[in-house]
Amino acid sequence: MTIRHLKIFIEVAQCGKMRSAAERLFVSQPTISQAIRELEQHYGVLLFQRIKKRLYITDEGKQLLFYAKDVVEQFDHLEEKMFNLSRTEKVKIGATVTVGECILSDIINQFKIKEPTVEVYSYANNTERIEEKLLNGEIDIGIIEGKIKSPNLISIPKIKDYLVLVCSNQHPFAKKDVINLKELANKSFAMREKGSGTRELFEEYMIKNKVPIKTVFEGNSPESIKREVVENNCLAVISIGLVQKEVQDSKIHIIKNANEGWNRYFSVVYHKDKELTDKIRCIIDIINNYKYLQNYPKFQSGMLINETS
């Protein structure tokens, strides 16, 4: 028994004649007769009484008609929804948390202006999770600040960014013009979670320079990190783009790395076997022309130096 059987049955029940049903469905009368016969054999009941060349639906037929109409309606609804999905163009963008906080909404808004009919899905998490979703084909393109590990992914640096050391305006470091890297040893740090590109860059730098990190808080969002800095006097290393408001409100003091050891890029990432559609290329073009650090005001800051470098 198939949906086609049910549609033929409904038409026959409504017309009362197989010939009329055949004409309305653009099939032959033997096809109609065979479908009704197969339904009767399938359910083991008589669906129509045949009296003087006219069909009269039986009680069993009325029961089937009641359910068949609902089943066919649901099937037609399913077909419509699925075909509409296939006609709707979609782009799925993944971004690391820092990128999501700094630029993702703006990039999506610019894309919607250029491609208003395209449906956009966005997902934010750390570098490790974005890499995983790209490899699984769950997203089309990623924008990340961390390092990609898989050789199956292509990563292209696009937008300049850099990390800064931050503290509250009440922290002793806020009163110093110059801080030596060694002074960070055993100071309380609020850190991003494992898998974060920001954390990886900072840890590699500190390990290289043999300075231990005392982690007293781990969080998966910039807001939680900044709260620890402001409310609990922790230090943190964070993207310059995430602390503009707090610096303007005199809640956070920034300290730049003098040797530019925390400079980095936001990179576009996609699978090496991924077909770059016109819509994905449009997103890449928007990122290529995106103005980021150029628009930020210059704030008074301290300077972090490394006397052993």
Score class of each variant (00 low, 15 high):
M1C: 04
R4N: 15
L6W: 04
E11F: 01
E11Q: 11
E11S: 07
V12D: 03
V12G: 01
A13N: 01
A13C: 05
R19E: 03
Q34G: 01
I36A: 00
E40P: 08
E40C: 07
Q41M: 08
Y43L: 03
G44H: 09
G44C: 08
V45G: 02
Q49M: 11
R50W: 09
K53A: 10
T58W: 13
D59L: 11
D59Y: 11
G61L: 04
G61Q: 09
Q63D: 13
L64K: 06
Y67V: 04
K69D: 09
K69P: 05
K69H: 12
V72L: 10
V72R: 09
D76V: 06
H77G: 02
E80V: 01
N84K: 12
V91W: 10
T98K: 04
E101D: 15
C102G: 06
I107V: 15
I107M: 08
N109R: 15
K112Y: 06
E115W: 08
E119C: 06
Y121D: 00
T127F: 07
E131R: 10
E132M: 15
E138G: 10
D140S: 08
G142R: 11
E145A: 10
S150K: 09
K158I: 05
K160N: 10
L163A: 07
F173A: 03
A174G: 05
D177L: 14
N180H: 15
N186T: 03
F189R: 02
M191F: 12
K194Q: 13
G197I: 00
Y205D: 09
N209P: 09
V211S: 04
I213L: 14
V216S: 06
F217W: 04
F217R: 02
S221L: 03
S224K: 11
K226T: 00
R227E: 07
R227M: 06
E231C: 03
C234M: 02
V237C: 13
S239G: 11
K245F: 05
S250Q: 11
K251W: 11
H253P: 01
H253G: 01
I254M: 07
V269Y: 08
Y270H: 15
D273G: 13
D273N: 14
I283V: 14
D285M: 11
L293A: 09
N295K: 14
Y296A: 01
K298S: 15
K298A: 08
F299M: 04
L304D: 01
L304N: 00
E307H: 07
T308M: 02
S309D: 09
